[in-house]
């Protein structure tokens, strides 16, 4: 019960990991109340699966040209996305 070290640690985790929300329109994962990708406000905390599209050497490159996963999911901006959003 009274283990101060354990308690402090759990608090630290609580601050560090904020629950990500997925945009229902573009599946982008964010901490904010508005999707920074499509400016939509329809966000959901219930999602499964994550896809991270990494940027190329050239920042403005379309990831769909180089990545199979991005072309399949039709993602045109690097970032963290959810696979399925409810």
């Amino acid at each position: 019960m009274g283990n101060p070290r354990r308690k402090r640690r759990s608090n630290w985790v609580g601050i560090k990991i904020a629950k990500l929300k997925a945009c229902k329109a573009c599946h982008y994962l964010t901490n904010e109340s508005m999707c920074p990708n499509c400016k939509g406000t329809n966000l959901s905390t219930s999602y499964t699966g994550i896809v991270v599209i990494l940027p190329g050497r050239d920042d403005h490159e379309d990831p769909r040209k180089t990545s199979y996963v991005a072309s399949r999911l039709n993602i045109d901006k690097p970032g963290k996305y959810a696979l399925k959003v409810r």
Binding site: I50, V51, V52, L54, G56, A70
Partner: peptide, 9 residues
């Protein structure tokens, strides 16, 4: 490295 995929299934 182009992408990372985590299918939670």
């Amino acid at each position: 490295v182009k992408s990372i995929l985590v299918p939670e299934t």
